[in-house]
């Protein structure tokens, strides 16, 4: 996986350039933000407030983080292939012996890694909260900590695969990004809600429902666990199918032009 040339190239491109001052400024701002956050919340959550308040703070942090990703991810990956087409580098990329799978998977992995990196800054505070929660009672199941991350990661995978799919299908980055947002929010969030009158279980395909109603819920009803798992599995499967279609289509438009 690490030898995928496309992945390595994309990672190189994330690297901030020559501009040392920009890099340092970025680091300082991030560090300051985290410091303030940790100072404001840390002492209070860890020692002051009650268990349930700490738990609520964790819910808010995770909820905000999840919402932020829902808004950001389609934009970050929506141009990943169409950009190559727009800057006229795609033809030369397709001319190399790299397989279509290597190209698509390399592109997806690079955005997945960026996503994983964005999960890191808030990880310590979440760990600290949970350390307190489980140290003092057995009311809060530790497994929930992992479950939220897994859910978040799989939904992220779904959104990125959807964006890669549109990025390959539509030749313009703008259209690809718009299509990703429209499908995610229009179809999977609003559409499933409208159709749930007919097929109630469809609401489970809404990532917000999955995350807020189940993953973050204090008392996860055992009856829902099956629906939740099924829905998550379906989204992951759908993402994988979209990737497979992208791989099959990657070299087609050029050949059949």
């Amino acid at each position: 996986m690490w030898n995928n040339p496309v992945l390595r190239k994309e990672l190189l491109r994330y690297k901030l350039r020559n501009d040392k001052s920009a890099r340092i400024a970025g680091l300082v701002i991030t560090a300051l933000f985290l410091l303030v956050l940790y100072l404001l919340t840390g002492r209070y959550i860890l020692f002051g407030a009650s268990q349930s308040v700490a738990y609520s703070v964790w819910q808010v942090i995770m909820g905000l983080q999840f919402t932020a990703f829902m808004l950001i991810l389609p934009g970050t990956a929506g141009n990943i292939i169409s950009k190559e087409r727009e800057q006229q580098t795609l033809e030369m990329l397709l001319f190399t012996p790299l397989s279509s799978a290597e190209i698509i998977v390399g592109k997806l992995l690079s955005s997945l890694l960026l996503f994983a990196a964005m999960l890191l800054p808030l990880l310590p505070i979440n760990i600290l909260i949970w350390a307190r929660l489980i140290a003092h009672s057995t009311h809060y199941p530790f497994i929930q900590f992992f479950q939220t991350y897994l859910t978040q990661f799989l939904i992220g995978y779904f959104i990125l695969a959807l964006s890669v799919f549109f990025s390959n299908l539509l030749s313009r980055s703008l259209y690809a990004i718009l299509a990703s947002y429209t499908t995610l929010f229009g179809l999977f969030c609003i559409g499933t809600g409208l159709l749930s009158g007919l097929v109630p279980s469809l609401v489970w395909l809404n990532p917000f429902v999955l995350f807020f109603e189940h993953s973050l819920a204090e008392n996860q009803s055992p009856a829902d666990v099956l629906s939740f798992t099924m829905a998550l599995f379906l989204l992951t499967l759908l993402a994988t199918v979209l990737l497979a279609v992208s791989i099959a289509k990657l070299r087609k438009p050029v050949q059949g032009m």
Partner: peptide, 13 residues
């Protein structure tokens, strides 16, 4: 070895 008439380069590496 193919050099297209119009091409781009990855300019951020």
């Amino acid at each position: 070895g193919y050099m297209p008439d119009f091409f781009g380069v990855y300019d951020d590496i």
